[in-house]
Nucleic acid binder design. Structure first.
Length: 569
DNA sequence: AGGAACTCGCCTGCCGGGTA
DNA sequence: TACCCGGCAGGCGAGTTCCT
C-alpha cells in the first residue's frame, strides 16, 4: 500500500511514477488584440488544484471502501499530487473578441485531462502495482504496440525500452528508513574503527596495514528522522554493536559499510612475531582473538538465510476467470499452494518485498530485480518474482535512493521474472552501487538461531524491539498478516501477454524440476553453486581493497580471555 | 505512416435568477 | 418554496496538425 490516511480524511500518496513531462510553453503569451496560448501552473493552494485533488480523493475513498478502508467520500482529498505530477491550466484565445478558453491538465506519467481520468492511475499507484494500471492511457499503451519489442531468442528475450524508466518507488515518510537508511536493524555491517574516536582502537586500525580496521558489527537501532525532506541533507546515525566488544556505539552511516563490500582475512602469518612489532602483537592479541571469533560468528550468519512473516497468497476468482491462458491459470493456482513471505534474511541483509536486489552477474552484465513477491517452492527453494532491470547512469551527483538512478526494464509491464535465491548477490545500495560481493546464504535457519549465532542477546536487549515487524513499513505489513488470505490488497500476478516468448519467461509448470542452482526462468544469467567463494576483487567503491575471505582464523587466544580483556576496556 | 500533441466543439451538470 | 430556464464551466470525444 503506497498511501497514508492523515487526519481529516486526507490521503497522502507515497508512490510516484511521475516523470514531469510538463508543458514547454509556460510563459504568458498574451498581447492586446492578439491570440493567447500558454500553460499556467496551478500550485497546490489554487482552488482548481484543490478541486481536482478533492474529486480524485472522493473517488478513491469510494473505491477503497470496498477494500475495507474507512474514508468519508464527502471530505476525502489528496494531500498533494505524487511527485513529478503538476497541474496546469491551458489558456487559449484566438483574438481579443473571444473569451479566454481554459482547460486544466495534470501532467505526470501521462497528460490527464480530468480528475476522472487521473483517479484510476492514482488508485493503481497506491495499491497493487504488480497489476496493470486500468487508466485509459496505460490501458491504451498496452494494447497499442510500441517500439518496445521483444528481441533475441526465446532463451534470453529482453524487452528493450527506448528510454530508461524510473523504478516505481515509494517515497513517503513511512518509507524513510528505506529511502534514507542504507542499513536495517539486525543487519551485519563493517564498522570503521577509525571513526569510533576511541584511542583504544588505534592499534587495531594500524595493525597489519589495516586488516582489522573494519570490525564485524550488527545494526542495533537507528535514530528516527521524522522531519526528513527530500533534498535536505540528513546525518543518519545508527546504534551499532561491535561483535565481541560490549557496548553500543552511535555512529554515522559514513562510518559503516555493507558486509558484502569488504572481505576480511587473517592468516596465521599475520600473528607471527616476525611480521609484527612484539609490543604491537601483545597489545593486539586479545583484539585479534576477538576479531577471529567475531568473523566466525559472522560466517554462520552470512551463510544462512531465514524467512519471516509467512502469508497465504491467493488469486481471486475474478482474476482467474479473466485469464484465458490455461497454463498461466494453472501456474497461478500452483503458486497459491506455496507459502509466501514478506521478508527474508539473506546472509547479512534483511530483504523486503519491493526491495531492489543485485543479481549475480554474467559476462559483466549486471541485472537488478525489484522484488514483487518471495515464496518457497518445495523443490526449487526460495524464489523471488519481480521486474528485472539493468542500471543506467546516476541521475544525481550523490545518489541516495534507487530512483536516483535510471533503470532500463528487461521485461514488459505484463511480464515478470522469477529468480532463484542462489542467483541473488545481495541488496542494492544506492549509496554503494558498485558492490561486487556475492551472498553465500545457503542454509535455512530460524531467525532467532541466526541472531543468537552472533553471540548477541537480541531477545532481551537487542533489535527485536525495533525489528522489521515493528518498524513503520513492517507495521503496515503486519496489519495485513492479521488476516492471512483475507486481505483484499493481496498480491496478484500480472497476466502474461500472449506471445512466443511467454513460456520461457515464467517458471511454474514447466516441469523442469530444476535444482536450486538452475533459475526457473530463463534469463541471461548463469548460476553458480551456492557457497562458491567470491572471487577476490578490487572494490570499485570507496577505494577499499578486498581480500580473499577466510572463514576459519588461526588465533591462539581463547574467547573467554579475549572477551574479558576487551570488556575491561 | 502512425503516434503524439494540440485544438475544437458538443454534451452535461451546476448554479443563480426568474416565475408560478 | 419549488420548479424552470439560461448561462457557464468543465469533461471528453473526435478531428487536425505535427513530429519521428
Amino acid at each position: 500500500m503506497s498511501y497514508e490516511i492523515l487526519a481529516n480524511n486526507v490521503i497522502r500518496v507515497t508512490a510516484s511514477d511521475g516523470c514531469s513531462h510538463n508543458p514547454s510553453n509556460t510563459t504568458v503569451t498574451e498581447e492586446p488584440d492578439t491570440s493567447m496560448n500558454y500553460y499556467h501552473y496551478l500550485p497546490t493552494e489554487e482552488k482548481k488544484n484543490h478541486d481536482w485533488r478533492k474529486r480524485v480523493g472522493q473517488k478513491l475513498a469510494i473505491r477503497l471502501k470496498t477494500y475495507g478502508v474507512e474514508l468519508d467520500p464527502d471530505t476525502a482529498v489528496l494531500e498533494n499530487w505524487p511527485s513529478g505530477y503538476e497541474l496546469y491550466e491551458h489558456r487559449t484565445r484566438k483574438d481579443s473578441t473571444q473569451k479566454i478558453r481554459t482547460d486544466v491538465y495534470l501532467f505526470g506519467r501521462h497528460r490527464f485531462r480530468s480528475a476522472n481520468e487521473v483517479e484510476p492511475h492514482i488508485f493503481w499507484l497506491i495499491t497493487d502495482k504488480t497489476l496493470p494500471c486500468q487508466c485509459k492511457y496505460c490501458t491504451k499503451s498496452r494494447v497499442v504496440p510500441n517500439n518496445n519489442t521483444i528481441t533475441g531468442s526465446s532463451e534470453s528475450s529482453i524487452v528493450k525500452k527506448t528510454e530508461p524508466a524510473t523504478l516505481k518507488t515509494e517515497s513517503s515518510t513511512s518509507l524513510q528508513f528505506k529511502r534514507y537508511f542504507a542499513f536495517r536493524t539486525g543487519e551485519l555491517v563493517w564498522v570503521d574503527l577509525k571513526d569510533i574516536g576511541d584511542a583504544t582502537f588505534i592499534p587495531m586500525v594500524r595493525w597489519n596495514d589495516g586488516k582489522m580496521r573494519y570490525w564485524p558489527s550488527i545494526i542495533w537501532t537507528r535514530d528516527r528522522h521524522t522531519d526528513v525532506k527530500p533534498g535536505v541533507p540528513v546525518v543518519l546515525h545508527y546504534h551499532v554493536k561491535l561483535l565481541r566488544i560490549p557496548k553500543c556505539r552511535r555512529l554515522k552511516e559514513t562510518s559503516l559499510r555493507p558486509w558484502l563490500s569488504h572481505i576480511a582475512m587473517i592468516t596465521p602469518e599475520d600473528t607471527s612475531p616476525s611480521r609484527n612489532n612484539v609490543t604491537d602483537l601483545i597489545l593486539n592479541q586479545d583484539y585479534i582473538s576477538a576479531f577471529a571469533i567475531a568473523l566466525n560468528a559472522a560466517r554462520k550468519y552470512t551463510e544462512s538465510y531465514a524467512v519471516e512473516s509467512p502469508y497465504r497468497y491467493r488469486e481471486t476468482e475474478y482474476r482467474l476467470l479473466s485469464i484465458s491462458d490455461i497454463k498461466e491459470k494453472q501456474r497461478l493456482q500452483l503458486m497459491a499452494q506455496h507459502v509466501h513471505y514478506h521478508y527474508i534474511w539473506i546472509g547479512s541483509e534483511h530483504v523486503y518485498e519491493d526491495d531492489v536486489l543485485r543479481l549475480k552477474p554474467e559476462a559483466d552484465e549486471k541485472y537488478y530485480l525489484r522484488v514483487a513477491s518471495i515464496y518457497k517452492h518445495p523443490e526449487k527453494g526460495i524464489q523471488f518474482t519481480g521486474d528485472l532491470y539493468t542500471r543506467g547512469q546516476a541521475l544525481r551527483n550523490v545518489p541516495e535512493t534507487v530512483d536516483d538512478y535510471s533503470w532500463v526494464p528487461c521485461n514488459s509491464e505484463e511480464e515478470e521474472f522469477t529468480i532463484d535465491l542462489c542467483d541473488v548477490a545481495g541488496r542494492f545500495y544506492a549509496t554503494w552501487p558498485d558492490i561486487e560481493g556475492l551472498s553465500k546464504a545457503r542454509e535455512l535457519l530460524r531467525v532467532h538461531v541466526r541472531h543468537e549465532s552472533l553471540g548477541c542477546d537480541w531477545k532481551q536487549n537487542g533489535f527485536a524491539g525495533e525489528n522489521a515487524a515493528t518498524t513503520g513499513r513492517a507495521a503496515k505489513r503486519g496489519t495485513i498478516l492479521k488476516l492471512p488470505g483475507e486481505n483484499l490488497m493481496r498480491k496478484h500476478r500480472r497476466v502474461e501477454k500472449t506471445g512466443a516468448n511467454k513460456s520461457n519467461r515464467r517458471d511454474e509448470g514447466n516441469g523442469s524440476g530444476s535444482t536450486a542452482a538452475q533459475p526457473a526462468v530463463t534469463r541471461p544469467i548463469t548460476t553458480q553453486p551456492t557457497g562458491t567463494p567470491p572471487i577476490a576483487t578490487q572494490s570499485p567503491d570507496r577505494s577499499i581493497t578486498t581480500q580473499p575471505i577466510t572463514t576459519q582464523i588461526a588465533t591462539p587466544s581463547t574467547s573467554t580471555n579475549a572477551a574479558a580483556t576487551i570488556q575491561a576496556n
